[in-house]
Design a protein around this nucleic acid. Structure first.
Length: 451
RNA sequence: GAGGGUAUAGCUCAGUAGGUUAGAGCAUCAGAUUGUGGUUCUGAGGGCCGUCGGUUCGAAUCCGAUUAUCCUCCCCA
């Protein structure tokens, strides 16, 4: 049979794995420094945990797992007869693959509330799955790196998370803008324009302003029943980057004022710790429905990387009612996520990966004959026992072949053992860059490889 | 959900206006070379040309369908 991967999935070569680990490690190190603790949740969740949490579109993109055994025995025969897939699913699939890490986290918090201490600071780096149509930089299986704190409404945490963004991207060598806005401020705008019932439509459309023209936004909102004059007013409002302007406008919107206050507080925290790249952007909306307070998004610094087109490298925000649906109230939380796959693409395009991400032994034994191979094997194992990473060619094959292998795998040294070396109880250490060779006994070799 | 591209050797891809036996590079193996690679030369193996159907004396090539995959829009990480 012909081997193939399901669409939107990838294999990773050793170098790619090493580079991905470098990203994950950089992110994780920062999370740990800020006092976040790791958790893991299963790849599968009950379908009921997942459905209805991501909107209509999200439900469509959920991977459903077919029930085991005779799944048709329990199938809804009416739905089956009517060929109603949507309805049939409930009776033939009770599990699905997780779509993000936030909803499983909410479930986790509710189920483990007696085991954890609030405010609970957790991070989670695991793959998620979406049955989306794949394209560049977008896959059906990809990793998310989430960091959330739940059980506190302190705005200090917003500042901590901004600081984490700032630190992680700085250590990766990428210059970014961290955009911040507040859903309450957006609601305030809707309120003073008298369209609070169309709040979601408004934000979704305004969010597209950097991609489509104002006229198109007006058009889109007209289709959703918002008058042109109101949309134009809304657009002019969010063009302002001065927070104080909003305070005046929000005379009739308590929520709007609250949003401005929250933003000022967070930005004040960030100023204290010297964060420069935080930018207030009132057009930032974020699609996900559960956000209620500050929202964030990270993008490449435009003036620096105008040649690279890449969506956001991360995003997040505050949510007040996430655990509510699972029966736990009064649990405000705030969290952000890193788009590791996109970060990978950016680092790779900019050539910003360190040279030495791949961890491998510096030397490999090559033997000329059976007896030498035995000696090389003994030395190999002795070195490994004292913690030195080392490799050996599996048989005394043709020497040229062994050299080729050592070279192709990028070893720094070849340790050559033939009759001559063996008789002296030594090996020849050949530097594969310079071609220089040096005879060494075991002790010399140990010292050479140990540093 | 809408649109576009691609499908030929293990891998990356050529294949001209339909015409005998479908090619290259890389990889693999063997030899020139019984202990020195990254950069030598020679040779070998390996293909129902995605699948089904149609046009034709004749199809990898043209047409239709189908499947798979990549990409663009929507949305997202």
């Amino acid at each position: 049979m012909k081997p193939a991967l399901p669409k939107g999935t990838r294999d990773f070569l050793p170098l790619q794995v090493a580079r991905r680990k470098y990203i994950f490690n950089t992110i994780e190190k920062t999370f740990v420094k800020y006092g976040f603790l790791p958790i893991e949740t299963p790849a599968m969740e009950s379908l009921s945990t997942l459905t209805g949490k991501y909107g209509e579109e999200g439900d469509r993109l959920l991977f459903k797992i077919l029930n085991n055994g005779d799944f048709l025995a329990g199938a809804d025969s009416e739905a089956l007869e009517a060929r109603d897939s949507q309805k049939l699913i409930q009776s033939i699939s009770k599990r699905g693959l997780r779509y993000d890490l936030t909803v499983p986290f909410a479930r986790f918090v509710v189920m483990n509330q007696n085991e954890i201490q609030f405010p609970f600071k957790r991070y989670q780096i695991q793959p998620v799955w979406r049955a989306d149509r794949p394209q560049k930089g977008r896959y059906q299986e990809f990793y998310q790196c989430d960091v959330d704190v739940i059980g506190s409404d302190s705005l200090m945490y917003e500042a901590e998370l901004v600081s984490i963004y700032s630190e992680v991207f700085a250590s990766l060598g990428i210059e970014v803008e961290i955009k911040i806005n507040n859903r309450k401020l957006l609601f305030g705008i809707a309120e003073c324009l008298g369209i609070e019932d169309k709040f979601v439509d408004m934000t979704v459309a305004l969010d597209k302003l950097d991609k489509i023209s104002e006229a198109q936004v007006v058009e889109e909102l007209k289709g959703r029943g918002i008058e042109e004059s109101i949309t134009i007013e809304a657009i002019s409002l969010i063009k302002s980057d001065n927070l104080k302007d909003f305070t005046e406008k929000f005379a009739n919107s308590e929520t709007g004022v609250k949003g401005v206050e929250e933003l000022l507080k967070v930005m004040d925290y960030c100023k204290r710790i010297g964060i420069k790249d935080l930018i207030f952007d009132p057009s930032l909306a974020r699609g996900l429905g559960y956000y209620t307070g500050c929202i964030f998004e990270v993008v490449l610094k435009k003036e620096k990387y105008h040649h690279i087109s890449m969506g956001s490298l991360g995003g997040g925000g505050r949510y007040d009612d996430l655990t509510d649906i699972f029966g736990l109230n009064d649990m405000s939380g705030v969290g952000i996520s890193f788009g590791a796959e996109r970060i990978y693409d950016v680092l790779s395009e900019l050539g910003l990966f360190p040279q030495d991400v791949e961890e491998m032994p510096s030397a490999i034994f090559l033997a000329m004959d059976d007896q030498s191979h035995e000696m090389a094997f003994d030395w190999t194992m002795k070195l490994r026992k004292i913690g030195i990473s080392i490799d050996i060619y599996p048989e005394p094959a043709k020497f040229k072949k062994q050299m080729k292998y050592a070279n192709a795998r990028n070893f720094k040294f070849a340790l050559i053992v033939g009759e001559q070396e063996r008789n002296e109880g030594k090996v020849a250490l050949k530097d594969l860059d310079t071609g220089n060779q040096e005879l060494m006994d075991f002790e010399m070799l140990r010292r050479k490889l140990q540093k």
